[in-house]
Design a protein around this nucleic acid. Structure first.
Lengths: 64, 64
DNA sequence: ACTTTTTGTAAATAAAACTTTACATATTGA
DNA sequence: TCAATATGTAAAGTTTTATTTACAAAAAGT
């Protein structure tokens, strides 16, 4: 599962720590997701979605 | 997190076992998600989405 | 009424998501 | 160049998602 979090952060001038803070997870979790170590839970995906005003499908791409 | 899986199954005339089969999880997992015991992972949410040709947001509703 | 199919549920286990602490490296900026 | 901020990563632990086996109850079909 690919994601555009790094770009979205850049566009919104946010650090990993800020994004973590706004979505209620740890900075390491954001880093791990950006680095593709694991996928976020569905609830967390919804929080990204609301924060960036984008559909989940516009943030995450299910490869395969 | 609410979901419309039960209704979508009904509309598509599927049993929990069939949905489980088509999305690659166990029947108990489908039952638990329908009953609200837990939320699906993001990858599983994408599989429901593709199967029913609906956006994740049209299947799952993030209450709160 | 009886049988088959479907749904609900439970317990034990496994796997994935996420936390905390901690430290190392990279980037920015004074 | 030095200090501060941001990012990458690792290990150990907790929580959440999912599996397997198994059985009971409800619904549907004959």
């Amino acid at each position: 599962m690919k994601n555009r979090l790094k770009v979205l952060r850049a566009e919104n001038d946010m650090t990993q720590a800020q994004l973590a803070d706004e979505t209620g997870v740890s900075r390491q979790t954001i880093n791990a997701i950006e680095k593709g170590k694991f996928d976020p839970s569905l609830p967390l995906a919804f929080r990204f979605s609301k924060l960036f005003n984008l559909k989940i499908e516009e943030i995450f791409e299910d490869e395969n």
